[in-house]
Amino acid sequence: MAEFRRAYGAAPWHLLLLAGCFAVTGWIALRLAGEASALRMLLWFLGAVIAHDLVLFPVYASLDRALRRALGRAGAPSPLNHVRVPALGAGLLFLVYLPGILGLGDGTYLAATGLAPRALLGRWLAVSGALLAASALLYAARLLARRAR
């Protein structure tokens, strides 16, 4: 047992568990291999990881770094989080409701419901503006409170 542990790097149950995990995935891969769209599914699966780890994360981390550089030295109270928080909120909304905001499903929507799709881009801008304005108001109030002291 100790010999196995040394060679493998963990207890036998660890190997068993991972073998089970890969067995499920392998069985699904074999099952889907016959589908015409199997390659597309694989590309979307791997593409999702690449899109998050190598695109989304570096982009938001770089933006945040630039923001910290620009506002990090500003006086107290720091405006940094008053920009960060509404920006993250707007970004999150954009990410989740992106198909609607960009109208990617408009054709299908019109064909299925017979209703004209609503322009959601303006709404997203309005909600984002409201978040930013609320944050700015809060910052102004904090500044005033600090001065009054």
Binding site: S37, R40, M41, Y97, L98, L104, G105, D106
Partner: peptide, 15 residues
């Protein structure tokens, strides 16, 4: 991603 696209009528994935 597939769930969000599906509920927003955007069947971009083609599967």
């Amino acid at each position: 991603a597939t769930g969000l696209l599906n509920i927003q009528y955007a069947y971009l994935f083609g599967f």
